[in-house]
Simulated assay, not measured.
Amino acid sequence: MNESLSVPPTPEKLTHKNPTIGKQQLFVKQAIVLALEMLLALPLCLLLAKFHIGGIAWIFGGIAAGTVVLQGCRVFYKYSPQPNRTARKVGMALVGLTIGASNAHANLASVVSSIPIFIFLSLFLLLSGSGIGYIYSRVSKTNILTAMLATVPGGVGVMAAIAADYNKNVSLVALVQAIRVTSIVVLIPFIARTSAGNYYPQRLSTNSAWLNLDASQLELLLLVLLITGLVVYPAILFKIPAGDFFGALLIGIGFNPLLNWLPFVGDISFSPPPLINFLGQMLLGITIGEYWGDKPNFTKGTIGYALMCVVMTLASGAIAAILAMQLTSWDWLTCLLVTAPGGSAEMILVSLALNHNVEIVTTGHLVRLIAINSSLPLWVFLFRRLDEQFSESA
């Protein structure tokens, strides 16, 4: 009888052969990294709040914490965790819920007539991003599908995920997208503060209650979070583009009217507490920072081409803002917020922090999200065809 058959497998072999154990270990590591990021982000956010930059401080603090923790893991522990996509989805849902509640009483019907303008501006930015991607691919000798995914304003996580699906350079796509989103989030509040004297930023009070401990409010909070989870999870499961953000935003808008419509419920006015907004912004910032901390050692030429690409994208956003000023009666700051080629959730949060025409900015970015995500399969198909043609000619 072969003695090797009677020898019990070692723990290492069991761990290697049992995928459940590997997933559990990965989950524990991701949870530890996320906990460290949030523990670091909290004091950074409170410190930034002292500079009176408004609620957007929580995004900045999260960006710094995500970058520092991931770089620390790589340098000191030789462990390179991937950006936590689950944390970003949770952050998008919390932010969408907050934004929806803030727009629940807004007169969105007044901006419906501007939807054709929003569509035109979205197509302009999409075509501009494609043109910039083509120039970027030719100058930097980068694969054209990679270059297009890096330059089209569709969000860091979405474009990086598509690049991974097609075995393209995920790190390069994430680098360009992260530079663009971070630049927009940093620049627009600075421009508004220095150039516009009539905006009033949303003040972040560190002394006021972040969570209403009243029993009825806590019950409503748990109910709205449960409904949000039940709506957002299928959207994520079926890979609906931006389903986490859209679903939570619709719940935020319709939660109070739905409850008041029920015959056995009295007049209810519920708004998510500031803690939900802060957590959502912090998670969004952390995931952006993780894409920064996850970068391998790029050459100076790669970073230079990426910066060139981002500058051209910012210039196209400025041109779109000028077009919006010619086509509408909005002031320049509203046009800038609507056309800024940053992440939709981040830009709407900036408008909330600046307390400036939130309903217009929300509608504009929702239209752009729908336009980009609905046409994304077509664009990816065209980019792949171009990629194949250039490969054959080469």
Rank of each mutant, 00 (worst) to 15 (best):
M1I: 11
P11V: 08
L14G: 00
F27M: 06
V33D: 02
L40N: 11
L42C: 03
L44K: 01
L48M: 09
H52L: 07
G55Y: 01
A57S: 10
A57R: 00
G62A: 05
V69T: 11
G72C: 14
C73Q: 12
F76P: 00
Y79N: 13
T86I: 10
G91T: 03
A93P: 02
A104V: 07
L108A: 10
V112G: 03
S113W: 02
S114L: 09
L121K: 07
G129V: 08
S140P: 11
L145E: 02
T146C: 15
M148Y: 07
V152W: 11
V156Q: 02
A161Y: 01
D165K: 09
Y166T: 04
Q177V: 05
F190N: 10
A192M: 08
S195N: 09
N198Q: 12
Y199F: 14
Y200A: 13
Q202T: 07
R203W: 02
L204T: 05
T206F: 04
W210D: 13
W210Q: 11
A215L: 07
L222M: 11
L222F: 12
L223K: 12
V224A: 06
T228M: 15
G229S: 06
L230N: 09
A235V: 08
F238S: 03
K239A: 10
K239N: 13
L258P: 03
L258A: 15
N260S: 05
N260R: 07
W261D: 01
I276T: 07
W292Q: 08
A306D: 00
M308C: 10
A321S: 15
L323T: 06
A324D: 03
S329N: 07
L337F: 00
T339Q: 09
G343W: 08
V350W: 06
S351E: 08
L352A: 11
H365N: 14
S374Y: 10
L376P: 03
E388N: 11
S391L: 13
S391Q: 15
S393E: 03
